[in-house]
Write a protein that binds this DNA or RNA. Sequence first.
DNA 1: TTCTAAATGCAAATATATTGCATCCGCAAT
DNA 2: ATTGCGGATGCAATATATTTGCATTTAGAA
Lengths: 144, 144
Amino acid sequence: MKSAIETFRNMGHPATRGRGEIMRILAESPIPLSPREIRERIPDPKPDASTVYRNLSLMVSLGLARSVALHERSRRYEAAMDGLHRHRVVCRRCGSIESFQPKNCDLSRIEKDIRGTLGFDVTDHSLEFFGACADCEGKQRGRR
Amino acid sequence: MKSAIETFRNMGHPATRGRGEIMRILAESPIPLSPREIRERIPDPKPDASTVYRNLSLMVSLGLARSVALHERSRRYEAAMDGLHRHRVVCRRCGSIESFQPKNCDLSRIEKDIRGTLGFDVTDHSLEFFGACADCEGKQRGRR
DNA sequence: TTCTAAATGCAAATATATTGCATCCGCAAT
DNA sequence: ATTGCGGATGCAATATATTTGCATTTAGAA
């Protein structure tokens, strides 16, 4: 995706190969990735891990990426495409992750409620679901 | 809270001082705490950090505690009181955390949707809101 | 082509979490 | 109250994740 590189330039940050690769990898992945996974997918010569971390932080602060917390040891990152936002569905059994595009993510009532009750201005939210994926559900049933 | 200790015993796990302290601290805290914060609040002699980690894992698997992911470096934990569940509101500016009891946390439609679309059996979810707290909002306004 | 600010690699530091093992302790049976 | 056993703990070592300082390199403007 070339526009990502443009975005870097427009914001006064040099475009480097590493940055382009990270953007591409995030854009192509259906699930959020950890810094380690991202680096693994960059073809050699790979940038140093610290560079990956630094760029992910930069990308988050530029609004190009978002971090996703799935109760794991490390954070994951996803491309922040426009306003489009997805929720995550995580299988507690096999650890598989799926992304879910809510038909009508109506949390606006709750957000309004929060503003009213706490005077807190909500800018975004993070919603993850946990349970058993179709495969694991199947196994479980079958075993009974 | 004595019942927590009972719960341990009933589930075949010896009640120790450390376990009691962790339960008490989580039950008393209005916000989820990191393992480090929990340990700091245990009066001397403090259990070893590894013991705190081990017990938190145990408590999660026994359903006595839940982990909360707030996009930080470490996970936080909260007491899992009955079915009662709270959402978190985090200020991106000052980092303050508030708990929010949703009036009617109606995610059941979304969960049903997930089952229908992915065949995924949702057992629980995690919902966090981010933005600016009343204090920081005020400062920001004042500055204009 | 030249220059400069910013990015990178590398190594070290720090934070977080996990594990092996010897010892200790809760608790149930005596 | 005493005893015995299995699980819990402390401690040290290790693994993993993330951050930082600094010398060197590079992108992009002049």
